[in-house]
Design a protein around this nucleic acid. Structure first.
Length: 361
DNA sequence: TCTGGGGTCCTAGGACCC
DNA sequence: TCTGGGGTCCTAGGACCC
């Protein structure tokens, strides 16, 4: 038996969900973010359709910047409830296929399947069936096939390669759609790439690695594990070395129990009064607590995040003496944690996080 | 172009205890 | 007397991802 990991990744997911209910927008440079008003400050692009990407619009870009590079863009408000519903629809569909499903986000999942021989195209056949089934939902996806999660996830990037180039054909053909990455072609396809090509290596780690003379995936694979452990810690260091070899987990982690829940808000204009800080934290804490308890969880720890007008961001948290399901206790604790900050600067963002305690008896 | 929101996991250091 | 070593709990901070 051979274990295959399939990574299913929806194309331009939020925009695609909008296209299902607004078919007349298909092919248009649709930009989802904020409340749909591109002039709104401090709001960013959540998803851009391929034509919008061709103009240079990217997720995370301020809406006002997106408007500048794509003045003909169709700006839509982010409707998370609808995307969550569509996501549930997709995950339910994926669970009808053989294998186990691990949800990675709204628009991504791993599927683990055990098949017969190694050299057959069984996983490609299954991937094709998944793509067809998703197409029947009016959506599109790419499927990465790998001998572990790391490779399956990266394979999806190759499957989407055409879509990422941003050319005009991208809307019609978002890549070949299916790609297989295994130990057999890992070195050929990945060795020369920068370490940031790896899933789990971002700009910070890449920079620290480059200071050690590690620039590419091949460098990382050849690096000294002791050195990596010394620089990145006893767990992360060896893990990075393993990543460089393309090795990774083959087990499906489902169901995943969430460990916490948070709400935060970047204010359209900085808050300057303590009464405003308190009011915002009371509101956020109440919401987080109600959502936590509605989900049948208790609160074990309360965290508050403050971001000042200079973008200086700090978090403080406090463990409760006993887990609670009392909204007021969460709110009062959040206020106490807030008051542990200096609060002598205008505030741009406030956030409240609950870490779940053990289930209530 | 002044930089969203919601998550997860890891590391380091201090307190405290034996 | 200036001096141990391990284990655990707790908070702060960093990094990454979608």
């Amino acid at each position: 038996m051979t274990r295959w990991l399939l990574h299913v990744d929806l194309d331009q997911f939020q925009a695609a969900v909008e296209f299902r209910r607004h078919p007349e927008l298909r092919g248009q440079p649709v930009i989802v973010g904020g409340n749909g008003n591109p002039e709104e400050p401090r709001k960013v692009v959540s998803c851009a359709s391929y034509p919008a990407r061709a103009h240079g619009v990217r997720a995370g870009m301020p809406l006002r910047a997106a408007l500048r590079v794509c003045p003909d863009g169709v700006f839509l408000p982010q409707d998370l409830a609808t995307y969550a519903e569509a996501s549930e629809e997709i995950m339910t569909l994926l669970r009808t296929f053989p294998g186990r499903v691990e949800v990675l986000g709204f628009d991504e999942a791993f599927l683990a399947i055990d098949t017969g021989a190694v050299d057959t195209d069984e996983p490609e056949q299954l991937a094709g069936e998944i793509r067809s089934a998703i197409e029947e939902l009016g959506l599109r996806c790419a499927v990465g096939i790998g001998d572990n999660k790391t490779r399956a996830k990266l394979a999806t990037g190759f499957a989407k390669a055409v879509g990422k180039s941003g050319d005009a054909a991208a809307e019609q053909d978002a890549g070949t759609g299916i790609f297989r990455l295994t130990a057999d072609n890992w070195t050929e396809l990945m060795a020369h790439r920068p370490t940031t090509a790896l899933w789990g290596v971002g700009a910070r780690i890449a920079k620290r690695m480059s200071a050690l003379g590690i620039a590419t995936v091949a460098d990382l694979a050849a690096a000294d594990r002791e050195l990596l452990a010394k620089e990145f810690g006893p767990n992360t260091g060896p893990y990075l070395w393993v990543l460089g070899h393309g090795a990774g987990d083959t087990e499906i982690a489902e169901p995943r129990e969430p460990v916490g829940h948070s709400r935060s808000e970047t204010f359209a204009a900085d808050l300057t009064e303590r009464s405003e800080f308190d009011a915002a934290v009371i509101r956020l804490a109440t919401q987080v607590a109600e959502e936590t308890f509605a989900g049948g969880r208790t609160a074990g720890r309360i965290g508050v995040t403050v971001r000042t007008s200079t973008f200086f961001t700090r978090t403080k948290q406090r463990k409760l003496a006993h887990p609670t399901a009392d909204v007021d206790e969460v709110v009062q604790t959040a206020l106490q944690v807030l008051h542990g900050f200096e609060l002598d600067r205008p505030i741009r963002l406030l956030g409240v996080r609950v870490e779940f305690g053990p289930p209530s008896e």
